[in-house]
Design a protein around this nucleic acid. Structure first.
Length: 202
DNA sequence: GACCAGGCACATC
DNA sequence: GATGTGCATGGT
């Protein structure tokens, strides 16, 4: 995949905090819509933990509206912000000091943060070596007979992490490439006839 | 105008 | 424990 696409330069975002916000906003949503929402936040100069939490929920909702599910995402963003401010005063460096398993537990306790959002924040914002699984990962692996159709998040995460050395750069690139290949081929080719993975796995 | 997108929580049985 | 449903905008 890397030979096919080259480096993906993920995650799209200028700061760890922007990555955290994007991870929540992109839940079941096309990135183009998330980009509009983040643009709005930057425009209003509120892409900062304290500033964002200080906004009235209705104001926040109107700014992130383009990202869809704006009422639930307002609630989810605010529950994350409350956690991030209460526990770390909105300081990424302070949060990074904690070990991966502790942080993962904490994030999963936040309402609105499930395994993919937690792992995206851990890998792409906090640079912790955890493999991010998503809908594309499942689709690609099951279509190439590398996992069961009914495999769940933890199954797929173990598939990778049991076989690969924990490496932030490697996990970063690998997940990004899976998403890229998913967008390019899975929708257009249900049988993966043109998928570059065919030359590797079949 | 249907269908879909880098999920998640909650209700119901 | 399994299964179903609501959430919402913007692109194809």
């Amino acid at each position: 995949m890397f030979a096919h696409y080259g480096p993906r330069h993920w995650w799209p975002g200028e700061s760890p905090f922007e990555v955290m916000v994007g991870a929540i906003l992109t839940q079941n949503t096309a990135w183009t819509n998330v980009a509009k929402a983040i643009h709005n936040l930057k425009q209003k100069k509120v892409l900062d933990p304290h500033a964002l939490y200080a906004l009235h929920p209705n104001t926040l909702a109107s700014l992130i509206r383009p990202a869809g599910y704006f009422r639930v995402k307002t609630k989810r963003l605010r529950s994350f912000l409350k956690f991030f401010l209460d526990k770390y005063n909105g300081d990424v460096a302070a949060m990074k000091k904690n070990p991966l398993p502790v942080l993962r537990e904490e994030l999963l306790e936040v309402n609105g943060i499930g395994p993919e959002t937690a792992d995206s924040i851990l890998l792409y914002a906090l640079e912790k070596p955890v493999f991010v699984v998503d809908a594309y990962t499942h689709r690609i692996l099951s279509r190439h007979f590398l996992c069961e159709e009914e495999s769940v998040y933890d199954d797929l995460q173990s598939f990778f992490m049991d076989r690969l050395a924990p490496d932030v750069s490697h996990f970063n690139e690998y997940h990004a490439l899976l998403v890229n290949i998913g967008k390019d081929y899975c929708r257009k080719n249900p049988k993966c006839s043109e998928c570059p993975l065919n030359s590797i796995n079949h």
